[in-house]
Amino acid sequence: MPIHQYRVFGNPIHQSKSPSIHKAFAHATHQHLNYQAQLVLDDEFERTVTAFFASGGKGLNITVPFKQRAFAMAQMLSPAAQKAEAANTLYLNEQGQLVAENTDGMGLVRDICSNLGGELTAKRILVIGAGGAVRGILQPLLAQQPLAIVVANRTHSKAEQLAESFTDLGNISACPMAQLQGSFDWIINGTSASLAGDLPALPGGLINPSTRCYDMMYSADTTVFNAWAIEQGAEQADDGLGMLVEQAAQSFRLWRGVLPPTAEVLQALRRSI
């Protein structure tokens, strides 16, 4: 019986944790598969995707910088992929159509609600950033029926455009960073700035003693954003390593029909970074 083939395509790709995560998932669920990271040249993405599935490949994860191009290739789109206009997961359905899914937001919500014991329903949420990472999380966040989501970005016009495209799903608006007022239940950093040691120009007063903060980036040390959050008096500040594991688990479920356990994989990954 042939071993089913899976890949993650990206450029760069050497830093990817996905092969070790999916190997652990396969072991935990007694699945026989081969998952590898593959560097794809910029002008060869579409051809490489087509060739992979033509050769019998079963599923792909897609990372930077190809998520929008993966979305554009698909014949069928999940609601999350359609709203995100980007895909991190590809597979063929029973009709042989290329299906695009975006599991990033599902991964975020599962990490917050299942792993971290958080609650998003009826909460006031500030999301920092207006790039592709933020676009990928808004539909699943809004599905949790928060009281309101406010998007703030260095370039306010981008935040306005982004919020406008999601107003059909719930109470979401944009606000210039300097004009943010009042505290929030959750502040989610969707920028990569803190990994470079930078912080968004946020005003004071956004955090109260019950505010929880979440940096979608992760590192071995506390991110600059999370260090700021704790200094400002946040109840708790977590990074995005759990999101990485949970989005991978959702991809695995789509491909294999089983949702793998994530706690031990997350613990092992935390020790290794």
Rank of each mutant, 00 (worst) to 15 (best):
A51K: 01
H32L: 15
G190V: 08
Q145R: 15
R212P: 02
A28S: 00
A152P: 15
A148S: 06
G118F: 14
C213G: 03
L266W: 07
F166S: 00
A86R: 13
V151L: 14
V40L: 11
Q179L: 12
L116H: 13
M73K: 04
A51Q: 06
K83V: 04
A220T: 15
N208A: 06
D238T: 15
R271A: 11
L141I: 01
P65W: 05
I207Q: 00
I112N: 04
L98Y: 01
K58D: 08
A81W: 10
A237F: 13
I273G: 05
F45Q: 03
L90D: 09
N171W: 03
A84S: 00
Q95F: 06
A80W: 11
W186Y: 08
V265S: 03
S183P: 13
M106G: 07
M106N: 08
N88C: 05
I273S: 10
T29A: 12
L180P: 12
P209H: 02
I13H: 11
G197Y: 15
I187W: 06
V134S: 05
L266S: 01
R256K: 15
G56S: 09
A28C: 01
V258H: 00
L141R: 04
K23R: 15
A248G: 07
V258A: 02
R270N: 10
R270G: 08
G170T: 04
A163S: 01
R154D: 04
I187V: 07
A196G: 14
A24S: 10
